[in-house]
């Protein structure tokens, strides 16, 4: 039995017929072909599938597409218009080498987007706990934290921290 749902994804409404068991991440990737949202585990541990649902970051592998009915979704593709300008976080990740393989990056950026929306001046400790539901295997997190601090300074309109590596 297919269910009719309406979801707004990156400001575009979509009318879909989906199996009730369809995971939201599969709806996003397979039905809407938005492949920037990734799948890194099967236990809600890694956060690679993180999106914004009505502005709140959720792991889209552990929510059904039907639960998103009537709601608004933002994926990595919807953060900035193609060709820019980038959001402060996207810019922060690039400027501070906050990514290597890029697989966890969309989830990290969306999680951090909510984090900074709630608190635009977090401490390093708050950032580390704030992204602790998102795993990165490449970067060792230091530059992800730096990227988020950079974005928070930019959002507050303050002087940007140095992006030079502290590699003495």
């Amino acid at each position: 039995m297919l269910k009719k749902i309406t979801v707004t994804v990156n400001e575009t409404p979509h009318h879909l017929e989906v199996e009730p068991r369809l995971l939201l991440v599969h709806m996003i990737r397979e039905l809407l072909n938005l492949t920037g949202t990734h799948i890194g585990c099967d236990t809600t541990s890694c956060g690679a599938c993180t999106i914004l649902l009505n502005g709140k970051s959720v792991k889209s592998c552990t929510i059904l597409a039907v639960q998103a009915n009537g709601k608004s979704i933002t994926t990595i593709e919807g953060l900035a218009p193609e060709g820019g300008p980038l959001t402060p976080l996207q810019e922060g990740f690039k400027e501070n080498h906050g990514l290597h393989c890029g697989f966890c990056t969309p989830g990290m950026i969306l999680r951090a987007t909510e984090l900074l929306a709630r608190n635009n001046n977090p401490t390093e400790e708050e950032i580390r706990w704030g992204i602790s539901g998102n795993l990165c295997r490449c970067t060792g997190y230091n530059n992800i934290v730096k990227a988020i601090l950079y974005a928070s300074a930019k959002m507050r309109g303050e002087a940007l921290p140095s992006t030079e590596p502290e590699f003495v």
Partner: peptide
């Protein structure tokens, strides 16, 4: 990668 345009096997 920061704009969701990476191209992985899946």
């Amino acid at each position: 990668f920061i704009q969701g345009k990476g191209h992985y096997v899946d």
